[in-house]
Design a protein around this nucleic acid. Sequence first.
DNA 1: CGGGTATTTGACGACTGTCAACGCCAGTGG
DNA 2: CCACTGGCGTTGACAGTCGTCAAATACCCG
Lengths: 230, 230
Amino acid sequence: MRKHALFKPVEDQFLQWKQAYRTTQCIVPARHLIYRQDEPLQEAYTLFEGWVMLFKSLEDGKRQVLRIALPGDFLGYQAGQELNAGHCALALTQCILCAFPKASVDEMVVKHPELTRRLIQMHMQTMAQCQERLASLGQKNAKARVATFLLDLLYRLRERSDAEGNRMAFHMTQEEVADAVGITPVHVSRVMRQLRDMGAVEFLSRSEVILDESELAAAASLNAPSTSLR
Amino acid sequence: MRKHALFKPVEDQFLQWKQAYRTTQCIVPARHLIYRQDEPLQEAYTLFEGWVMLFKSLEDGKRQVLRIALPGDFLGYQAGQELNAGHCALALTQCILCAFPKASVDEMVVKHPELTRRLIQMHMQTMAQCQERLASLGQKNAKARVATFLLDLLYRLRERSDAEGNRMAFHMTQEEVADAVGITPVHVSRVMRQLRDMGAVEFLSRSEVILDESELAAAASLNAPSTSLR
DNA sequence: CGGGTATTTGACGACTGTCAACGCCAGTGG
DNA sequence: CCACTGGCGTTGACAGTCGTCAAATACCCG
């Protein structure tokens, strides 16, 4: 079984806990919704396998991708979830999720301070990522945002040993990338072409990519007027 | 003493706890840094009085404002703060802060599950705000971002009874607003003029403003091509 | 092999950034 | 009391990034 981040340093405790609460494991097919933003959420999840895209739909039909959850990440534990989740979760690949009732999490806080500390730590890490993304959307141009986004995925996959060197799986359409970095699909296509032309990105197939880390890093911190499009 | 959100429902416990840990109260003058992003942070804070701006400085000199902390908010409890805070905190006004060592917070998790639950809840709320801001930066145009930003402040000040109706204090320069919503100061000026012209915003002085809630709300969800600048 | 979706490309225009000049205001010092 | 000075806000002209529309191509899956 895959190691998962929430309980990494306290695996044994977790196993006991999980068993005690008879946590349900479930499999979601690729491109299926896991939950909707207007539904109340009774449970939280840890993601064992697969990619999940968390996003918010706005009134005018636009979407903002909040986070790409990777194996080991924690989902669905959000503020005010009794009313509604506040965002949707979509499986980008087939996913294996471990679901458990929110009440169990609340109970955990009382009974297992170690796990609670870990939960808080993970939440703070998610927060830090969210803030990085804020800075990226607020201060960088389109090319730098896309480069930052790709690099972030590479690094996070490496932590999980899901990337071999500079090669990683990639399960998003350009439209989804667009909604993640706050530009249009058309412009994603243009930026991707730039990145390919400079050798920063190479697609082996639709779902497999090789990144040039240093090229991407250079592009990622680039706010200055980029090299012309043609 | 001002009510503060972290301990609102458990005021008594907090008072005991605070006393037990001999929490330090401190006063920071306006426009002074509370902590830097490259310093390790030993303590966390609750803000009793004043406005604090949390922001990240990027390599190229740009800044991204992550959050405006208002009375009752919690600061400085971030991931990896042993190494560095990851962002700076600047007092926008004179502030009264209640500081306590990170170790105390860790200890609280063990001894006071009720407080811990509240801490988690606050963190999730901060997270939700961060995600709202992501959506704003990613999907809205300049005018809508500024409108959203102002409305958010109004609502949050009202919760604290720090705004009377549509009138609220305002302690930021346009440059700071610019860094918050991800546009340039010059363009903030232009957008502010639009908002004033449509009656959504009226400055009584540099630090006092009246907002028209419905006008702003309309502008805030507006992504469509806005009315021309002149 | 065919149909639908995703991606690519071009032309054009809108939104936003940049540069520069000016006005306003507060605090300072004479 | 008044001139001075520096920071902040405003405005205009112009440039560039990015969005929109549309059409063509490539690709996946039945």
